[in-house]
Measured scan of single mutants.
Amino acid sequence: MQRGKVKWFNNEKGYGFIEVEGGSDVFVHFTAIQGEGFKTLEEGQEVSFEIVQGNRGPQAANVVKL
């Protein structure tokens, strides 16, 4: 599992990016966020996640808020 901080997340569009220290930013879609109810992330929030290869490159999967 990787760890990072949410760079930004757009609730209306349902996606954003996670900053990884020493690495490239990783795309995150709301469907990758674990948990119940409305799935969103806050700027600066710490998360753990896996990186998978999506249609447009690397993206976050199994995102857990820390």
Rank of each mutant, 00 (worst) to 15 (best):
residue 1 M to W: 06
residue 1 M to Y: 15
residue 1 M to I: 12
residue 1 M to L: 08
residue 1 M to G: 07
residue 1 M to S: 08
residue 2 Q to N: 10
residue 3 R to G: 12
residue 3 R to F: 12
residue 3 R to M: 14
residue 3 R to Q: 11
residue 3 R to H: 09
residue 3 R to L: 13
residue 4 G to P: 01
residue 4 G to S: 05
residue 4 G to Q: 02
residue 4 G to E: 01
residue 5 K to P: 03
residue 5 K to S: 10
residue 5 K to L: 10
residue 5 K to C: 12
residue 5 K to T: 13
residue 5 K to F: 12
residue 5 K to D: 04
residue 5 K to R: 09
residue 6 V to N: 01
residue 6 V to T: 13
residue 6 V to P: 01
residue 6 V to W: 01
residue 6 V to E: 00
residue 7 K to M: 07
residue 7 K to P: 01
residue 7 K to H: 06
residue 7 K to R: 08
residue 7 K to C: 12
residue 7 K to W: 01
residue 8 W to C: 08
residue 9 F to T: 02
residue 9 F to S: 02
residue 9 F to L: 02
residue 9 F to K: 02
residue 9 F to P: 00
residue 9 F to V: 03
residue 9 F to E: 01
residue 10 N to R: 10
residue 10 N to H: 15
residue 10 N to D: 06
residue 10 N to C: 10
residue 10 N to L: 07
residue 10 N to P: 01
residue 10 N to V: 05
residue 11 N to T: 10
residue 11 N to R: 11
residue 11 N to Y: 05
residue 11 N to E: 10
residue 12 E to G: 11
residue 12 E to L: 14
residue 12 E to P: 15
residue 13 K to T: 08
residue 13 K to A: 06
residue 13 K to L: 14
residue 13 K to I: 07
residue 13 K to E: 04
residue 14 G to D: 02
residue 14 G to K: 07
residue 14 G to N: 05
residue 14 G to M: 03
residue 15 Y to A: 03
residue 15 Y to K: 03
residue 15 Y to N: 03
residue 15 Y to P: 00
residue 15 Y to V: 04
residue 16 G to W: 00
residue 16 G to M: 00
residue 16 G to Y: 00
residue 17 F to N: 04
residue 17 F to C: 04
residue 17 F to P: 00
residue 17 F to G: 03
residue 17 F to D: 01
residue 17 F to H: 04
residue 17 F to S: 04
residue 18 I to D: 00
residue 18 I to C: 04
residue 18 I to H: 01
residue 18 I to R: 00
residue 18 I to G: 00
residue 19 E to K: 15
residue 19 E to N: 12
residue 20 V to K: 15
residue 20 V to Y: 13
residue 20 V to S: 12
residue 21 E to I: 15
residue 21 E to G: 14
residue 21 E to L: 09
residue 22 G to P: 15
residue 22 G to M: 12
residue 22 G to E: 11
residue 22 G to S: 14
residue 22 G to D: 10
residue 22 G to W: 11
residue 22 G to V: 11
residue 23 G to N: 07
residue 23 G to Y: 07
residue 23 G to C: 15
residue 23 G to I: 09
residue 24 S to A: 12
residue 24 S to K: 14
residue 24 S to D: 13
residue 24 S to V: 11
residue 24 S to L: 13
residue 25 D to N: 08
residue 25 D to K: 06
residue 26 V to D: 01
residue 26 V to L: 09
residue 26 V to Q: 04
residue 26 V to I: 11
residue 26 V to C: 08
residue 26 V to N: 02
residue 27 F to T: 03
residue 27 F to S: 03
residue 27 F to K: 04
residue 27 F to V: 03
residue 27 F to C: 03
residue 28 V to P: 01
residue 28 V to D: 00
residue 28 V to T: 08
residue 28 V to G: 01
residue 28 V to Y: 03
residue 29 H to C: 01
residue 29 H to S: 02
residue 29 H to Q: 04
residue 29 H to V: 01
residue 30 F to E: 07
residue 30 F to P: 03
residue 30 F to C: 06
residue 30 F to R: 14
residue 30 F to N: 07
residue 30 F to T: 05
residue 30 F to G: 06
residue 30 F to Q: 10
residue 31 T to D: 04
residue 31 T to M: 05
residue 31 T to F: 02
residue 32 A to W: 02
residue 32 A to M: 05
residue 32 A to N: 08
residue 32 A to C: 06
residue 32 A to Q: 15
residue 33 I to T: 02
residue 33 I to E: 02
residue 33 I to D: 02
residue 33 I to K: 02
residue 33 I to L: 06
residue 34 Q to Y: 07
residue 34 Q to C: 07
residue 34 Q to I: 04
residue 34 Q to R: 13
residue 35 G to R: 05
residue 35 G to I: 05
residue 35 G to P: 04
residue 35 G to N: 07
residue 35 G to H: 07
residue 35 G to Q: 13
residue 35 G to S: 09
residue 36 E to I: 09
residue 36 E to R: 13
residue 36 E to V: 12
residue 36 E to Y: 08
residue 36 E to C: 09
residue 36 E to A: 11
residue 37 G to F: 04
residue 37 G to E: 08
residue 37 G to R: 06
residue 37 G to N: 09
residue 37 G to S: 07
residue 37 G to I: 04
residue 37 G to L: 05
residue 38 F to G: 08
residue 38 F to S: 07
residue 38 F to T: 05
residue 38 F to I: 09
residue 38 F to Q: 12
residue 38 F to N: 13
residue 38 F to L: 06
residue 39 K to G: 04
residue 39 K to H: 06
residue 40 T to Q: 09
residue 40 T to D: 05
residue 40 T to G: 08
residue 40 T to K: 07
residue 41 L to Q: 01
residue 41 L to N: 01
residue 41 L to Y: 02
residue 42 E to K: 14
residue 42 E to T: 12
residue 42 E to F: 08
residue 42 E to L: 12
residue 43 E to L: 11
residue 43 E to H: 15
residue 43 E to N: 14
residue 43 E to R: 15
residue 44 G to H: 14
residue 44 G to R: 11
residue 44 G to F: 05
residue 44 G to T: 06
residue 44 G to L: 06
residue 45 Q to Y: 07
residue 45 Q to T: 09
residue 45 Q to G: 15
residue 45 Q to R: 09
residue 46 E to R: 11
residue 46 E to W: 09
residue 46 E to V: 10
residue 48 S to F: 12
residue 48 S to P: 01
residue 48 S to T: 13
residue 49 F to H: 02
residue 49 F to W: 01
residue 49 F to T: 03
residue 49 F to R: 00
residue 49 F to N: 00
residue 49 F to I: 05
residue 50 E to I: 08
residue 50 E to T: 14
residue 50 E to L: 11
residue 51 I to V: 14
residue 51 I to N: 07
residue 51 I to F: 06
residue 51 I to Y: 15
residue 51 I to W: 09
residue 52 V to E: 12
residue 52 V to Q: 13
residue 52 V to M: 15
residue 52 V to P: 01
residue 52 V to A: 15
residue 52 V to I: 11
residue 52 V to H: 09
residue 53 Q to C: 14
residue 53 Q to W: 13
residue 53 Q to E: 13
residue 53 Q to K: 09
residue 53 Q to A: 13
residue 54 G to K: 09
residue 54 G to S: 10
residue 54 G to N: 05
residue 54 G to V: 04
residue 54 G to R: 08
residue 54 G to E: 05
residue 55 N to W: 13
residue 55 N to G: 07
residue 55 N to E: 09
residue 55 N to Q: 09
residue 55 N to R: 06
residue 55 N to K: 14
residue 55 N to L: 09
residue 55 N to S: 15
residue 55 N to Y: 04
residue 56 R to D: 04
residue 56 R to H: 07
residue 56 R to L: 07
residue 56 R to I: 04
residue 56 R to T: 04
residue 57 G to M: 04
residue 57 G to S: 06
residue 57 G to R: 06
residue 57 G to F: 03
residue 58 P to E: 11
residue 59 Q to L: 14
residue 59 Q to C: 08
residue 59 Q to Y: 11
residue 59 Q to A: 12
residue 59 Q to K: 15
residue 59 Q to F: 15
residue 59 Q to V: 10
residue 60 A to S: 04
residue 61 A to R: 14
residue 61 A to Q: 14
residue 61 A to N: 07
residue 61 A to L: 07
residue 61 A to G: 10
residue 61 A to S: 13
residue 61 A to E: 08
residue 62 N to S: 15
residue 62 N to A: 10
residue 63 V to F: 00
residue 63 V to M: 02
residue 63 V to W: 01
residue 63 V to I: 05
residue 63 V to L: 11
residue 64 V to M: 07
residue 64 V to D: 07
residue 64 V to A: 10
residue 64 V to L: 11
residue 64 V to E: 12
residue 64 V to K: 10
residue 65 K to W: 04
residue 65 K to M: 06
residue 65 K to P: 15
residue 66 L to W: 13
residue 66 L to D: 05
residue 66 L to I: 08
residue 66 L to K: 09
